[in-house]
Amino acid sequence: MVEITRLPEEARFSFRVAAGGVAAASKAFGVDLPTTIGGMAANGSRRALCLGPDEWQLDAAASERDAVVAAFAGIYADTPHSLVEVTDREFTYQISGEQAEELLTVGVPRDMALVTVGSGTRTLFDTVPAILVREADNRFTLSVWRSFAPHAEELLHIANKEFAAGL
């Protein structure tokens, strides 16, 4: 059996900046933004996940939301960028347990061996655009936009029941 829980929302931002602005952005956020796609770096409750050549997902505790916005506003004049809060856009599910990886293969087309511990990626979960992060060997988080969440969640539970029934 795999445990599927929806995590409480904190603060999440979609961040984009050109290569020349990565250093300034890292300083503003307090985390060295990883520049390898899939790379992830954290400092306290703040975490940066590199999704594309110029795109990151930034996570922080809800209490730090305003501080993050203010820090980036402070560098905007010298480092043009886009910072959009997307906290409300998606639900994040934690999927953990011995068969967590196998459960995700129900919907993820990507070879799960490519999703190494401490890395994340945008991909699909049964036609639903999703961001998948491997937190530990048997623990993942899957973020999907809320309008797709009922489908994704239902599919996870159906597959989990099949696992429990030994199918």
Binding site: I37, G38, G52, P53, P109, R110, D111, L114, T121, T123, L124
Partner: peptide, 18 residues
């Protein structure tokens, strides 16, 4: 399924993502 090498991700990834 076709596997496509993304030159930015530098990985062989399933056609469904493209």
């Amino acid at each position: 399924m076709l596997l496509i090498h993304c030159p930015y991700c530098d990985k062989e990834l399933p056609e469904l993502e493209f």
